[in-house]
Write a protein that binds this DNA or RNA. Structure first.
Length: 318
DNA sequence: AACCGTCACAACCGCATGCGA
DNA sequence: CTCGCATGCGGTTGTGACGGT
């Protein structure tokens, strides 16, 4: 699942991030923000390229990254959005707070793609079957249901209120298996329209107005709410977790206090040589789990001098 | 127990885009 | 307008986990 750490020609580490590297990156970005990804690893004491740091932060360490299994609602949303937008993962991810484009992309390729293809096949088979039915009528039952597809409306907005959809889906099923959704066949172009009428909570318009996605996620992840434009917004809730558990792909939500200006203050006064020797009183939010920080912050105001930098010198961590 | 195929996902790579000089 | 740099994006790869034989 993870790559074996290795080094490239330039000495930059590649492969799996270690706990210590994560700590360094979190500690640095939490304190100073991502002012410049290319320069950041040097000051954060990481033998990584900036690109790798950015990716690690954006896809894994960022406090508002929701981890854990995709809910059914999320999956259906991704399928719908992919059908509409194609492989525009970042756009899809933007509509799913807490989920990264990489995560969505992986989930698509490993799970949802097949499901979508199977559904398409089922649809084609149904059409073929339907052609036969025209020759031999009355072999199936056609049910017309109102499709409340508003929560995943076609204007990319998630607001049910923004949609006045009155479209209908014609559902044909074999009478003997009419109760089984697996056997339902859909005649409209939206293979997943049936979900609108069968996912109960989603059928409730107020669900998308009042309920938030934290209801469908596990633990306490970023709270998702709908803004006036009908788009999702997320706000962080204070939740603690350990980096160890983060490595085990658990939910995480911490508040980041990016002291952007603070970095430049420190930077202006610091040289590469003394940067790490300056005592630092943690200015991070108290909501940041101490486990995520560099060692000893829990016991001391300052970090312990354990850090060997890229130049082989030992410095105070902060 | 060993082997093999598949799955899941973190991470890398190359290209595209945006922006300031 | 062009150039260079930083960042973002999507495709792809590599590897451990896991189940089947």
């Amino acid at each position: 699942m993870v790559r074996t750490p290795s080094c490239d020609k330039s000495g930059m580490r590649k492969g799996t991030w270690t706990l210590e590297e994560d700590r360094k990156l979190i500690a640095y970005v939490t304190r100073y923000g991502s002012w410049n990804w290319r320069q950041l690893p040097r000051f954060a004491g990481l033998a990584r390229c900036g690109k790798s740091c950015r990716l690690r932060w954006m896809n894994y360490l960022r406090p508002d990254v929701k981890r854990g299994n995709f809910t059914q609602q999320e999956e259906e949303f991704i399928i719908r959005m992919h059908k509409k937008l194609g492989n525009r993962w970042s756009t899809i991810a933007a509509e799913l707070p807490g989920r990264t484009d990489n995560e969505i992309k992986n989930h698509w390729h490993t799970t949802l793609k097949k499901r979508s293809q199977q559904n398409t096949l089922t649809k084609e088979e149904a059409r073929a079957s339907k052609s036969k039915d025209k020759v031999l009528p009355n072999k199936g039952v056609t049910v017309t249901l109102p499709a409340t597809s508003s929560q995943f409306s076609d204007n990319s907005s998630l607001s049910p209120a923004s949609s006045t959809s009155s479209e209908f889906s014609n559902i044909t099923s074999d009478p003997s298996t009419a109760a089984s959704m697996e056997n339902l066949v859909f005649e409209d172009d939206d293979e997943f329209g049936f979900l609108d009428s069968y996912i109960d909570p989603m059928n409730n318009e107020s669900f998308w107005k009042e309920l938030t996605l934290d209801d469908i996620s596990f633990n306490n992840v970023p709270i998702v709410s709908e803004d006036t434009n009908g788009c999702f917004q997320s706000t962080s809730s204070s939740n603690s977790n350990t980096l160890d558990s983060l490595h085990k792909s658990t939910s995480e939500s911490i508040v980041v206090d990016n002291d952007f200006g603070g970095f430049f203050d420190a930077y202006a006064e610091a040289t590469v040589d003394n940067f790490w020797t300056q005592p630092y009183v943690a200015g991070m939010s108290s909501n940041v789990p101490t486990e995520l920080l560099a060692p000893s912050v829990a016991e001391s105001e300052y970090f312990t001098p354990i850090y060997d930098d890229l130049w082989g010198q030992t410095h105070l961590y902060y």
